[in-house]
């Protein structure tokens, strides 16, 4: 078992770390996206949404105390992000060293945009995550116009519609990046963990595409609904 702890030394080991932490990320985004949909009145509505946001602190009750499981989840997610980014950065450094002289002309034959822009998209998502927490978790004044603790629904609607809808537009751009990242990433998880072969590769591609559309599409519904006035302050 100790051998598994030496995985980080090889490029493949770092990719396995990347795959496992990415898988946690996909699981988290599914849950987060599902929770978000409670903002819509046909599923929940403002009160239900606020109750849900507060209820997250009671996650795992009665085994876990107030906020305990939430903090465990937060720490696990933070660790996953740190490992995911660390693996990406060190692997990128190796790769850019490996191609030390660039081609004068280079053409790809079948590469998807998603696969070629994994790193750029990842960087954008990293910036987005920090912004998103400053915006709607911490509600830093200046980033969020009028943040009130406990008023999750109004914070969401005011936050997205402020500054000429620029936050909403940034959220939409980030969700496009997320969709691309998941489309290549989810399939790559299977490839990197050695669970892919020529029989499964097409079904796995289809699964990744479905995940990408459902997750990114589900998230994008919120800023779109704010822009089109479907979600109004309560």
């Amino acid at each position: 078992m100790v051998g598994a702890l030496t995985l980080y030394r090889s490029t493949i080991g770092r990719k396995i770390i990347m795959a496992l932490t990415g898988l946690v990320g996909v699981g988290f985004t599914v849950g987060h996206m599902y929770g978000n949909l409670k903002a819509f009145s046909f599923i929940g509505g403002p009160e239900y949404f606020n109750e849900y946001a507060e209820g997250l602190r009671e996650l795992g009750a009665p085994i876990f105390g107030h906020g305990h499981l939430l903090w465990i989840v937060r720490l696990v997610l933070l660790a996953c992000i740190v490992l995911h980014v660390w693996a990406a950065v060190t692997l990128y450094q190796d790769s850019s060293q490996a191609r030390n002289v660039r081609y004068a002309q280079q053409k790809t034959l079948q590469a998807t945009l998603a696969s070629l822009y994994m790193r750029v998209g990842g960087l954008l998502l990293f910036i987005f995550i920090i912004y998103h927490m400053a915006h709607l978790t911490w509600g830093i004044p200046g980033i969020h116009p009028n943040f009130t603790y406990g008023e999750a629904y109004n914070n969401l609607v005011y936050g997205l519609s402020s500054y000429f809808y620029l936050p909403a537009i940034f959220y939409l751009i980030a969700m496009v990046a997320l969709g691309f990242h998941i489309y290549h990433g989810a399939w790559s998880v299977f490839q990197t963990l050695g669970l892919n072969n020529r029989t499964y590769t097409q079904p796995l591609r289809a699964l990744s595409l479905t995940l990408a559309i459902v997750i990114a599409g589900g998230f994008a519904m919120i800023p779109l609904a704010v822009i089109f006035g479907i979600l109004q302050p309560a």
């Binding site: 493949i12 790769s95 696969s115 490839q191 963990l193 072969n197």
Partner: peptide, 29 residues
């Protein structure tokens, strides 16, 4: 460098080696 599962290697391979073998290598590793 390291593999990012882009698949350009298999597309130019004159012997049509497939990405399956990379998945296998990852599993054995």
């Amino acid at each position: 460098g390291n593999c990012t599962n882009i698949g350009e290697c298999a597309a130019v391979c004159p012997k049509e080696i497939s990405l399956d073998f990379i998945a296998n290598l990852n599993r054995d590793m």
